[in-house]
């Protein structure tokens, strides 16, 4: 049984979650990482992806996040996301729209660096579509 620690998820509009959790899988821009209690201090940017939150007692929650960063410390994890939606509330149409937008971004990108970035975003969005089976 992992020790619980404080997890906060903040979007620009409000504080979405502030509670004790056992572990969270964070979709970092350089790869996913799992944060448990007593994690080494890390500051990482996010790619669009799913947060896998495990609450004490083993209950799970999935939250879709986009653009932001995570700050992990020994006794807390704070995630600031430009957008955060509970995976259960995520609807197929909205996600399809996101994918379409991302595709347009790829097509519109002016230079290679921008195109790579947009492509990365598109890939992670597609991955979410697959994982959620939408």
């Amino acid at each position: 049984m992992a020790d619980p620690y404080t997890f906060e998820l903040v979007s620009p509009e409000r504080l979405l979650i502030s509670e004790d959790v056992e572990s969270v899988v964070v979709p970092g821009s350089e790869g996913d990482f799992q944060v448990m209690a007593n994690h080494a201090p890390v500051l990482a940017t996010l790619r669009p992806g799913l947060l896998d939150v495990v609450l004490p007692g083993g209950k799970e929650r999935r939250i879709f996040v986009r653009d932001g960063f995570a700050e992990a410390g020994p006794d807390s994890l704070t995630i600031l996301a430009r957008q955060a939606i509970d995976a259960a509330d995520l609807d197929k149409k909205a996600l399809a729209q996101e994918v379409k937008d991302a595709q347009e971004d790829v097509a519109d990108a002016k230079d290679d660096a921008a195109r790579d970035k947009a492509q990365e975003k598109l890939d992670s969005l597609k991955l979410i579509q697959e994982t959620l089976g939408l």
Binding site: S29, P41, V42, L43
Partner: peptide, 13 residues
């Protein structure tokens, strides 16, 4: 202060 690890590095963040 604890030393933070940055991922990617500070400039990029």
């Amino acid at each position: 202060r604890a030393v933070y690890e940055y991922e990617p590095d500070e400039d990029e963040i």
